[in-house]
Simulated assay, not measured.
Amino acid sequence: MEHWLTTIPPFAVYLLAGLAVGIESLGIPVPGEIILVAAAVMSSKHELSISPHGIAISAVCGAVIGDTIGYTVGRRYGHHLFGFLERKFPHHFNKDLIDYAEHVFHRWGMLAVFFGRFIALLRIFAGPLSGSLKMHYPRFLAANLAGAICWAGGTTYLVYYLGKAAEKYLKDFSYVGLGVALLFGLLLSTVLKRRLQRKVEAYAEQRRVEQAAPAAD
C-alpha cells in the first residue's frame, strides 16, 4: 500500500481534493470532506511528495468555484433546482431539510454561508440556496471565501500536523494514529449531522403546528 501511494503524482491528489470539494459545493452530495482529510493525511507522510499547501489551495479554490457555480444556478433556477435534487438524491434532500436550510439562510445571511461551510448538509446548500434567495453576490463571495479558507485550510493543516505528530511519536504505528485521527473526525462529523437532523425535525414540527393553528381557528 505504501509503495503504491508513492507512485501517485502530487498533482493528481491536488486535483482530486479540489474537484471533490468543488462538486460538493455545487450541491451534489459527494464526500468532499472525507477526501480532503484523506489528502491531508497523505501530505503528512514524509515518503510522499505531497504538499499540504497544495492541498489547502486546491480545496479553497474548489470550494469557492463550486459555490459560485451553485450560486449562479440557484439564482437562475431557484426552487426548481431543489425539486430536482430532491428527486435525484432523496436520501440527502427532503422538504423539511430544505425548509430549515432556507430558514437559517434567511435569518443569518452571510454568517450562514460562513459557518455553513463547517456543516456537511449546510455546506451543500450554501451556494444554490444563497442564489435562490437572491443574496447580493459580493456579500456571498466574501462569506464564501472566508469560510472556504477557514474550513479547507484549517482542516488541511490540522490533519497535517496531527499526522506529523503521529509519525514522530508513534513511529511505526503512524498509520494507526492517522486512522484514529480520521475516525475521530468522522465521528465528530456524524455527531454534528445528527444534531442538525434533530434541529430540522424540531423546525418541521414547529411549522406543522403553526400551519395547523389557523385551520383549527
Rank of each mutant, 00 (worst) to 15 (best):
M1P: 10
E2V: 08
E2S: 12
H3V: 10
H3Y: 13
T7I: 07
T7N: 11
T7W: 03
P9M: 12
P10L: 10
A12D: 11
V13R: 04
Y14E: 06
L16P: 06
L16F: 15
A17R: 00
V21H: 04
I23V: 14
L26W: 03
P29I: 05
V30I: 11
P31D: 09
G32M: 09
E33A: 03
I35P: 04
L36F: 02
A39E: 02
A40F: 00
M42D: 00
S44Q: 08
K45I: 09
K45Y: 12
H46N: 14
S51C: 09
G54F: 05
S58P: 08
V60K: 06
C61F: 15
C61N: 03
C61V: 12
I65M: 13
I69Y: 06
V73D: 10
R76W: 15
R76N: 08
G78D: 08
F82G: 07
F82Q: 12
L85W: 15
E86R: 13
R87T: 14
F93V: 06
N94L: 12
N94C: 13
K95V: 11
I98S: 07
I98R: 05
D99P: 01
D99K: 06
Y100D: 01
E102Q: 10
F105R: 04
R107G: 05
W108K: 10
M110R: 14
A112I: 01
V113M: 00
V113D: 00
F114V: 03
F114P: 00
I119W: 00
L121S: 03
R123A: 03
I124R: 02
I124Y: 00
F125I: 03
F125N: 03
A126N: 07
A126G: 02
L129K: 04
S130R: 00
S130V: 06
S130P: 03
S130C: 07
G131P: 05
L133S: 02
M135I: 08
F140C: 02
L141S: 08
A142K: 06
A143R: 00
A143F: 01
A146L: 14
G147R: 07
I149T: 09
I149A: 10
C150D: 06
A152E: 06
G153K: 04
G154H: 04
T156G: 06
T156M: 09
Y157K: 02
L158N: 04
L158S: 13
L158H: 09
V159H: 01
K164P: 02
K164W: 00
A166C: 14
E167W: 07
L170I: 14
K171L: 15
D172E: 15
G177I: 10
G177Q: 15
V180F: 08
V180C: 10
L182G: 12
L182K: 07
L183E: 05
L183Q: 03
F184I: 12
F184L: 10
G185P: 02
L186V: 14
L186P: 04
L188M: 10
S189R: 09
L192P: 04
K193Y: 10
R194A: 11
R195G: 11
R198H: 15
R198Q: 13
V200Q: 04
Y203D: 12
Y203A: 11
R208H: 14
V209F: 09
Q211N: 14
A212F: 10
A215S: 13
D217T: 05
